[in-house]
Simulated assay, not measured.
Amino acid sequence: MRKKPRRHHGRFRRILPAACSVLALAMIVSYYAFPGLVGQATAAIAGEQFHAPQSGVGPASSWTAGYPPRGVEAHKAPLGRPAAVAQTSESYAFIGGDSRSGLIAYDPCRPIHFVTRPDNAPEGGRELITRAVAAASQATGLVFIDDGGTTEGYSTNRGPYQPGRYGKRWAPVLFVWATAAEQPKFVQVPVPGETNVAGLGGSQAIVGDTGSEVFVTGTVQLNAGALGETMSRPGGPALVQAVIEHEIGHVLGLGHVKDPSQLMYDRARPGVTTYAAGDLTGLARLGQGKCFPNH
C-alpha cells in the first residue's frame, strides 16, 4: 500500500501513515469544553466551546499480528435502518473525510459493543449513557450491545483488539468517567470564567490495502468532577446527556458544523440538548455505510 498524502479539513488534520502491511490504524479524537459552571444549569451550557478534532496514528501492523479473526459477528445485510428524519437539513459534517462522499463510518452489518468503567460515575450517569446510546442507535440504525462494566481505563495506546479482556473480536467502545488526575485536560471543579473540558471522544479506523476505511472501536472520556457537579443542578442531567450525545456523534463520525441550532455546533447553545435535524440527517447517512465482511 502506497503512502497517502496528508489531508486537511479546516483545522482538522488527519494523517495516514506509510504501510507495507495489510492495515494501518488511525485514531480520530474530538473534545468538548465549556465555561465554568456557575448559576443555573441552563446557563452553564451557553457558550460552550467545541474544539476542532485532532488525530494521531498508531503503528502499522499485519492483520495476523494484532487483529481478530476476519468476519466476527458480520452479517450479510445491515442489522437496522436509520429512523426517518422528519425534516432533513444540510447542517452536518463528517469527521472522517474531506467531503461527504469520503465519510468513514462503522460497519452497519455488525453490532457495536460498548462497555462502561463505573469508577467516578455520578449517580444516574450510567442511565444517561444508555439513553445517549439509544438516541444514536435510533438515528443511525446501528445496533449497540451493552457489555456492562469494565476495569479498563483510557489509554492513548489503547489496543483495538484485546482478546484477553474482551474475546476474539474488536474491543468495545469504551466509556470512562475520568478524574482530573487521569486526564490533564479535565479540572475537578469548574472554574468560573474559564473554559473547562467536559469530554473527549473519538474512534479508531482501520485502513485496508484498497484504501477503504472503517471504524472498529472508540472511546468517550467524561469529566467526572465537572459533570457530576452539573448533575446536581436543575436541568443538569439533560445537559450531561447532551455532552455524551455530542461525543457519541464524534465517535460515529460527525464533525462540527456552523449552525448553532445543531448539537454538533462548536459552541453549545441553551435549549440544544439532543440531536437536531442536521445531526439526525448526518447520523442517518453514517448508519448506511459500507459493510466490511472481511475485517
Rank of each mutant, 00 (worst) to 15 (best):
T210R: 08
E123N: 08
G202M: 05
A171M: 00
K168Q: 07
L227F: 06
R117I: 04
V272A: 03
D209P: 01
Q54L: 09
W63Y: 11
L142V: 04
T179M: 03
V29C: 04
P68N: 03
V29G: 08
I104R: 13
M27L: 05
H246E: 11
R158M: 12
A52S: 15
L37Y: 14
N120F: 11
A181W: 03
K4L: 15
A224M: 04
V257F: 08
V257G: 13
R126L: 10
A24Y: 13
R11G: 05
L200I: 14
D107G: 09
T116I: 11
G71N: 02
G193C: 09
P111S: 13
S155P: 03
E127I: 01
A26Q: 04
G159I: 05
T88L: 08
G193L: 05
A43D: 13
T88W: 01
K4R: 15
M264D: 12
A180F: 00
C109H: 06
I129A: 00
A178S: 15
L239T: 13
H246F: 09
P122Q: 02
T230V: 12
P184W: 02
A74W: 00
F50I: 07
F186L: 02
G80A: 07
E90L: 13
A24G: 11
G236L: 01
A60T: 14
G208I: 04
A178K: 01
V251P: 12
L16Y: 10
A171H: 01
A276W: 02
G141R: 01
R169L: 02
R165G: 04
P192S: 06
D146N: 12
A136M: 02
A284H: 11
D107P: 03
V173W: 08
A180W: 01
S91L: 10
V216K: 02
T151D: 14
G253T: 03
A24C: 07
P192M: 04
L252E: 13
L222R: 04
A65R: 11
V257L: 11
R13V: 15
G211A: 07
R6L: 15
P111A: 08
G66C: 06
G249H: 07
W170R: 12
A180M: 00
A60Q: 13
P5S: 14
R126A: 08
V216N: 10
T151G: 03
G278P: 09
Y154M: 07
D147A: 13
G201A: 14
A105M: 02
W177M: 01
P68I: 06
P270Y: 03
H256F: 09
G278M: 06
L174K: 06
A93N: 14
H8T: 15
A44E: 14
D147I: 00
L222S: 03
